[in-house]
Design a protein around this nucleic acid. Structure first.
Length: 471
DNA sequence: ATGTGC
């Protein structure tokens, strides 16, 4: 793999063979994937061959090997010139994302009731594989309003307050969701609303330990020493089933649309085709399910928090990092309608962007970066004139597979190691913890430093874990 | 990520 270092945090893979655009990798030298163990840079090249791709096939500093597309990949296609949409460019966990709530409470004030709070969160957070959720909605008729209304519908039904929606991407729901494009099987798997899931999904009590930009932090409602709650989860079995259904559909439709791709996992269809439109409508439904899921979990946290601490929690923001969106961007000086795939990449709107609520217009969109277990998490914001369609990293990014990680910690006790650092742990399985140990991930601080160095975003605040609830 | 692997 020929990588040309263009600047300290930007590498180019020149266009060759079937590539329609170059590849661009935003990373420091030390963050570049090991090409022997991780095929993500090959995947960057493969994505560059997709019909209608514009500008470049991008990789964020946390890039690693994924299904077809790399995780940490951004690719935009031009809708009017046959650009495609690919389920692999969104991922199986459609609209997986992060919600951050902030309390008017300092770490020292929480300490006396921390155990009580953690026990309350332990009780109120369904998690793990295949379990049900807090909000019992099921069947096509029951779920339809969730799939079209997302967090807005959850708030209407009493799971939160109207102000929350001002702090949600798309004000709580994406348009163009169509429940009729969601299979019966996906609907059957939809009875998990208000549940965390497993793997790297978590609910964490955190404390702000560093503020990089006082003015922006203040606009986001954040200050040093403050207690926050971060929720990282997605669309559970429903989103997974939708991804599976449409990969299959598109594998069949590729011949008809005369599309050939170098990897079968890049199955795709023109955005304007019936298959492309159906996928986007089903994907939007899963996105709304994920948003409602985080809304319901966030509201449950709020109730426990109020009972234990007598303080409220304000929503800082809720943002996805696995989604395709139709957006307008300048390409070669012309405004074009693009389908922007962000897979393990976070939208980062700059100050002044029209999609921001008025009170964030001066500072930009909060970008929420969950750390790996035991590591800090970050709040970033967008910057003007950034490359990659206003996108940045989404987390630490795996450095070891789950299997490798579980093997490498044999004989250690990950729970004890967290508790030794005064991090309270609730409910996590040994296997789950083993797969998520810090060694399995890149260094989150290095990742956000590279993202900022590459001109993708700016750091606003850092939070450290106080207590973690995992599946 | 996922009622975990055709």
């Amino acid at each position: 793999m020929e990588l040309v270092e263009e600047s300290p945090y930007r590498f180019r893979i020149d266009q060759h063979d079937e590539m329609r655009v170059p590849g661009v990798v935003f990373a420091s030298r030390s963050l570049l994937p090991d090409v022997h163990a991780d095929k993500s840079l090959e995947q960057v090249v493969n994505v560059a061959t997709l019909p209608g791709i514009v500008d470049a096939s991008y990789a964020m500093p946390d890039v690693h090997w994924g299904y077809g597309f790399p995780i940490g990949g951004v690719a935009a296609t031009d809708i009017d010139t046959g650009g495609v949409v690919s389920p692999g460019g969104v991922g199986f966990d459609i609209s997986c994302g992060v919600r951050l709530l902030a309390a008017d409470l300092d770490r020292s004030e929480l300490q006396p009731v921390l155990d009580k709070l953690m026990d309350g969160l332990d009780m109120s957070t369904p998690r793990g594989m295949g379990k049900g959720g807090l909000w019992h909605v099921s069947g096509r008729s029951g779920l339809a309003a969730v799939l079209t209304g997302g967090s807005r519908y959850a708030v209407e039904q009493g799971h939160g307050v109207a102000r929350d929606l001002e702090r949600c991407e798309d004000y709580g729901a994406v348009g163009d969701a169509d429940p009729d494009r969601v299979s019966d099987r996906a609907i059957e798997r939809g009875g998990q609303l208000g549940s965390l899931g497993s793997g790297n999904h978590f609910l964490e009590v955190q404390a702000v330990d560093h503020v990089y930009d006082e003015r922006t932090a203040e606009a986001f409602g954040l200050r040093t020493g403050q207690i926050c709650v971060m929720i990282h989860c997605g669309s559970r079995g429903l989103g997974h089933q939708i991804c599976t259904d449409y990969i299959r559909m598109m594998e069949g439709a590729m011949v008809e649309h005369h599309i050939r791709v170098p990897d079968r996992q890049l199955a795709c269809a023109p955005v304007s085709s019936p298959e492309g439109q159906a996928y986007l409508a089903a994907m939007a439904a899963a996105a709304n399910y994920a948003r409602a899921n985080r809304q319901v979990l966030g509201e449950a946290v709020r109730r426990v928090f109020e009972r234990v601490t007598r303080r409220g929690l304000d929503l800082v923001y809720d943002i996805s990092h696995n989604l395709a969106k139709i957006e307008t961007h300048a390409v070669d000086g012309q405004q074009r309608q693009l389908c922007v795939h962000r897979k393990g990449a976070t939208r980062a709107l700059p100050p002044g962007h029209p999609d921001l609520p008025a009170d964030l217009a001066g500072v930009g969109q909060p970008v929420l970066i969950p750390g790996s277990m035991g590591a800090p998490s970050y709040v970033l914001t967008g910057v003007p004139g950034a490359p990659a369609f206003a996108s940045t990293c989404h987390g630490a990014g795996r450095a070891q597979s789950r299997k490798q990680a579980a093997k490498s910690v044999q004989g250690q006790d990950p729970r004890r190691q967290l508790e030794a650092r005064d991090i309270a742990v609730r409910g996590a399985s040994r296997r789950g913890l083993a797969e998520e140990v810090p060694e399995a991930y890149k260094d989150i601080s290095e990742v956000v430093e590279a993202a900022e160095g590459a001109g993708l975003c700016r750091r606003v605040a850092r939070m450290v874990p106080v207590g973690v609830v995992k599946g």
